[in-house]
Design a protein around this nucleic acid. Structure first.
Lengths: 184, 184
DNA sequence: ACCTGAACACCGTTCAAGT
DNA sequence: ACCTGAACACCGTTCAAGT
């Protein structure tokens, strides 16, 4: 007779997610997750292959949430206004929970097909808006590769307190955005 | 009578640096560094407060090297040409040794005064070129905060294999650079 | 002054044994 | 089918003891 399951893959992923968001990736230990789920560490391996698989689940979850946050935050009538509000939504997502943001696009795990798919999913809103803005097909990718690195780099540096030389950081973001979207 | 020193702070930092560059930050363990230096792990604490201090020394070292690499790679007569060559030098520095690049601007340790100073040092070449390009004083900071995030984000994504949708990545870098420097 | 062995708490992970 | 205790190799770190 099988012992009743005390937890589930989903519950464990949720706990892992909360640990990361509250205290950073280092707080995501197999012991802490198991403990919060009311099981012993070895039992966790019936649900996830290893700690990396747990972290991967968190990353995918966060990418899904980012996509939803971006869609919800996109507003305006002109293409440029919509792209700007999208960029602000992206930045706000990072600032709202730095340790949540840090888990995405981290490491060199983009080769993993599931991570890759999740990144692609999160990038869809931008692709759609660029096409809606009548950006030619062969310019969508290069332009995305200007916008996303700027956003990613800006957010990482901001949540890492890298902008510590004074000046208005909000204004700098606006200037950068305006510069990049000037051609539209 | 004091026992003769088998190693030094500098030698340990160099070993740490090599471990990170060759196998990533996770390879930087107190045991591995001590072993390579011919001492036992506890002895390392006579030279560095803890593993974090060792990693910090590596980060500062890499930032110094980045500054030198940028200066050496900056060429051209027009301001825009010089800024472009500078950006290419930055990107090349990251691509040449991804695990070396990953240690800089990582974590949220910008509050640390030594890291802060090293980051400032590495940013000097850009500030100087922007001033030489007659960019008004109050625009140097916002413009830097457009260029550096783009470069940092681009390099991180590139070494993380994030640009895996096809297309010419070199061309994308050029497009992004051209877009950002268009106003000069 | 620097190095060492022994020890501690913690980490991820495996595995045989339980139900 | 899922959970457990015991065990392993490793990690960072402390400390008393050596020279």
């Amino acid at each position: 007779m099988p012992t009743p399951a005390k937890t589930s893959r989903e519950a464990l992923a949720r706990i892992a997610r909360e640990l990361v968001e509250a205290s950073g990736p280092d707080a995501l230990t197999v012991g802490a997750v198991a403990n919060a789920a009311g099981i012993k560490p070895p039992s966790l391996y019936k649900h996830f292959a290893d700690r990396a698989a747990l972290l991967k689940a968190v990353e995918i979850d966060v990418l899904r949430e980012l996509e939803a946050h971006i869609r919800a935050g996109t507003a305006g009538t002109t293409p440029k206004a919509r792209l700007k509000s999208m960029a602000h939504a992206y930045r706000d997502f990072g600032r709202a929970a730095p340790d949540r943001y840090r888990v995405i696009y981290s490491g060199n795990a983009f080769i993993d097909p599931e991570i890759r798919a999740a990144c692609l999913f999160a990038a869809q809103p931008l692709f759609e808006e660029l096409r809606a803005a009548d950006v030619p097909d062969d310019r969508v990718l290069p332009l995305s590769r200007t916008i996303v690195p700027f956003l990613h780099g800006f957010v990482l540096m901001e949540i890492g307190s890298a902008f510590n030389l004074g000046g208005d950081v909000d204004e700098a973001f606006e200037v950068g955005l305006e510069t990049i979207l000037a051609g539209l």
